[in-house]
């Protein structure tokens, strides 16, 4: 029992520290989680951790939250998952609450406003970089259906102003159908 309490405490504090100290989103926190839970604490096997990361990345929602749910559950069941999620969510909740309290006062400051305006260009550059990286990955997959989906989805959202959710659902369905048809073709003798 004492030992179990220790596991819960370590799990929560590890998740809290990882979340509080990691800037730059899910793709940054995942390798750090691996370092902590596989290399330092030896709670999870290397291969299993890779599987959990794959699930966290392909599931909807924040990657860091998904990964902490999986790690927490793996280590200490449902309570573990809950504690790990709390540890991951609390730091941003507290920090952003503090930031938003002084946001209005700070935003009207001329200097801050100038910095924010300059930063906007930086944000745009970061997003552009992400689009190039991810787009290249889709193109390299070598399936023209995916290129078409990507183009059509962009036109639908940007120009036709279609709601994002049906676009996503349709793309998922087309991806599944394409895979199913491709497999049938492969099975049939030429």
């Amino acid at each position: 029992m004492e030992k179990k309490k220790g596991v819960y405490r370590t799990l929560f504090s590890a998740a809290f520290k990882l979340s509080a100290g990691t800037f730059g989103g899910g793709f940054v926190i995942v390798p750090l989680m691996r370092e902590k839970f596989v290399r330092q604490l030896h709670w999870i096997e290397e291969q299993e951790m890779m599987d959990l990361i794959a699930i966290a990345e392909s599931a909807p929602g924040a990657i860091a939250v998904n990964a902490s749910i999986l790690v927490g559950y793996h280590v200490a069941g449902c309570l573990g998952a809950l504690l790990a999620v709390l540890g991951t969510v609390l730091p941003p909740l507290l920090i952003i609450s503090a930031v938003s309290c002084c946001y209005s006062a700070v935003r009207d400051n001329v200097l801050v406003s100038l910095v924010m305006t300059g930063m906007l260009s930086g944000v745009a550059a970061v997003i552009c970089d992400v689009v190039i990286t991810l787009g290249a990955r889709v193109i390299k997959a070598g399936r023209p259906v995916l290129w078409l989906l990507m183009g059509l989805a962009f036109v639908a959202v940007q120009i036709w102003k279609v709601n994002i959710v049906p676009v996503m659902l349709l793309c998922g369905a087309v991806g599944a159908a394409d895979t199913a048809l491709g497999r049938r073709k492969a099975v049939r003798p030429a």
Binding site: G151, A153, V167, A173, D178
Partner: peptide, 11 residues
């Protein structure tokens, strides 16, 4: 795979 293509377009 289908979802990933859509995601790039959204971003």
């Amino acid at each position: 795979a289908g979802l990933r293509s859509a995601v790039v377009a959204m971003i």
